[in-house]
Design a protein around this nucleic acid. Structure first.
Lengths: 135, 135
DNA sequence: CTTAACGTTGACGTAAACGTCAACCCTGCT
DNA sequence: AGCAGGGTTGACGTTTACGTCAACGTTAAG
């Protein structure tokens, strides 16, 4: 049984237009991300061809954007997926250190988000309270 | 005993420069936020004077920015602090509904952030595993 | 009294992340 | 043959969130 998130087979391929539609973005955005070095789809002649790994990478990118990561931060992270396969100790060590920094940064954002959420809840509570006091 | 987050008395006042320094931003940013209707400090002649409520509002704004809220989204939320004191049922109801939408949006971002965090953790784990396999 | 260190407004510049053409090339109908 | 509907690469426009002057006013010190 294939998981619900994987409606399409693992060997499915997409054109720019198809993938853009599925991800809810424009083809311009896909081309822009490619120009920025975030993805590198293969080509059929001059036409871009995206596979399931490109798609997964894109979903990671879009998720990052939703909570405020810049494209250059995202580029660094997606680049690490490749770097983690290295066999040079030095590189693995600096990579691991950087990953620690990134994790700390993300946790800080998580706290900021949680605090904002609780403040919004407070406003809602005050709002509800006012409503209850009305005739 | 005053809380640690409140090193300064409740009646303290700040100039633009002082507050900018304390918040780690520039005076330009403070003026920009004012022009955008996010804050409205009082004036001493033509000079801006910020009190502890302005400061709290600013900290809320900056927190929002850190996880990707736009200034217009933030403006809407800070504006609700005032609207929640309304006494018109209609307004309180629409406000409460909007607060629900905002909460849902923030929770979605929270999920995106959590998923990204766990993916980063996975990369770190793979990285560590590679390191352990080295001589 | 003037100079330094703050403040003010106004105008223009800039980086990021795309949007919006234009001009072109394939491909599959009809 | 022709044309609609995809794809391609430029190139320039736009919005957001400020940065960066310029020209000016106002205390505070020497």
């Amino acid at each position: 049984m294939t998981p619900a998130t994987e409606a399409s087979p693992a060997d499915r391929l997409w054109t720019v237009g198809e993938l853009a539609d599925e991800l809810g973005i424009t083809t311009r955005t896909l081309r822009f991300y490619e120009a920025e070095g975030l993805i590198t789809p293969s080509r059929a002649g001059s036409a871009r061809v995206y596979d399931h790994r490109d798609r997964a990478r894109l979903r990671l990118i879009l998720r990052g954007k939703r909570f405020g990561m810049s494209l250059s931060e995202i580029r660094e992270i997606v680049g690490m997926y490749d770097g983690a396969a290295s066999s040079e100790r030095r590189q693995l060590e600096t990579l691991l250190a950087r990953l620690g920094e990134i994790t700390a940064d993300l946790r800080a954002r998580e706290r900021d988000l949680a605090r904002t959420l609780s403040e919004v809840d407070e406003v809602a509570a005050r709002c509800q309270q006012r409503l209850d006091q009305l005739p």
